[in-house]
């Protein structure tokens, strides 16, 4: 569980984080979205006990980040956006070092390391020098490092940044596995559809302020204007188009082909049901209706543009 209370970070005249208050329940995967300099990494650094807030505080599973930093470190696994590795250590030595740094006994480390390497799919690289691993492998190794002390809370700052699609997919799978294990995960990413796939909730951060928060669907629903409906009919698309044009909640209708019509609709779901019911009553044989989701990137741009104003 993460409880952030009025977290503020100021650098002289610049406010990096402004009164951030956020409560994330245990087992939730929470995605942080924001443009560069929005305050995501500052929030993460404060939660990871690397940076003190100017005011406000936060609790990680009940431990205060200011007064009980060591308790926080015990409960928290942190993967920064930019990180280096000890190139001249072997993969298992790397994890062993961090295990020892968290006070795990050699026996505990010996048991944990193979399990973690299996989780991040690096079992076959166990005795290879870290230097020889690909970027994606290093990212996964860093994630394993963050998990070495079995923390209840994970903070992942852009874990898939700079990775190829396959590595991103692997990283996504690992996060899903961790979610199933009941970990609370705070994750940031610039690849927004990726967040939508992994997260229970997202929060949009802009200029240090949380300007939107909720499930991916609710944010999308809230921010969208007209929904784009693609309607496929068995009979004439002309007939369907003229029916839709008569509805005051339809802003635009486009005929794609003989059987396909696209209309932009701003009514509620209930109103949409009526629209379709009336179409069927007029013998318009609708066999497929598809609502095109507005791209999360567009929503993000809409939200942050609003915040700038």
């Amino acid at each position: 569980m993460i409880d952030i209370q009025g977290l503020t970070k100021k650098y002289e005249d610049f406010t990096a984080l402004d009164q951030l208050t956020l409560h994330i329940e245990q087992g939730t995967v929470f995605g942080f979205v924001g443009s560069n300099g929005a305050g995501k990494s500052t929030t993460f650094s404060i939660l990871a006990t690397l940076l003190a807030p100017t005011s406000g505080t936060a609790y990680i599973n009940g431990a205060n980040i200011i007064e009980q930093p060591n308790d926080v470190r015990r409960q928290l696994g942190y993967m920064p956006d930019f990180f280096g590795v000890y190139d001249q250590l072997k993969t298992d030595e790397y994890l062993d070092f961090y295990g020892a740094s968290y006070g795990l006994s050699s026996q505990q480390r010996a048991e944990l390391i193979p399990t973690l390497l299996e989780l991040v799919k690096l079992t076959d690289k166990r005795y290879e020098y870290v230097d020889l691993l690909s970027r994606g492998m290093k990212q996964r190794l860093c994630l394993a490092r963050a998990l070495i002390h079995d923390p209840a809370v994970l903070i992942l700052d852009e874990p898939a940044s700079g990775l190829d699609p396959r590595s991103r997919s692997e990283m996504r799978d690992i996060v899903k596995t961790l979610k199933m294990q009941g970990k609370t995960i705070l994750i940031s990413s610039h690849i927004l559809p990726e967040l939508a796939e992994m997260c229970d909730e997202i929060g949009v951060l802009e200029k240090g302020r949380l300007i939107a928060r909720g499930s991916v669907d609710s944010i999308q629903g809230h921010m969208q204007g007209d929904r784009q409906l693609t309607v496929k009919v068995l009979n004439s698309s002309q007939q369907a188009a003229s029916h839709f044009r008569n509805d005051p909640l339809v802003s635009n209708v486009q005929i794609v082909d003989d059987n396909t019509v696209i209309c932009f609709y701003r009514g509620s779901k209930e109103q949409q049901v009526n629209l379709l019911k009336q179409a069927l009553q007029q013998d318009i044989l609708i066999y497929q209706l598809q609502e095109e989701r507005q791209d999360l990137e567009d929503i993000f741009l809409t939200i942050t543009k609003g915040a700038e104003k």
Binding site: S45, R73, Y78, F83, G84, S101, Y102
Partner: peptide, 13 residues
């Protein structure tokens, strides 16, 4: 410089 310090500082050492 090698960006390994932060990870070291988040351990319980």
């Amino acid at each position: 410089e090698k960006q390994t310090l932060n990870m070291l500082l988040t351990t319980t050492q």
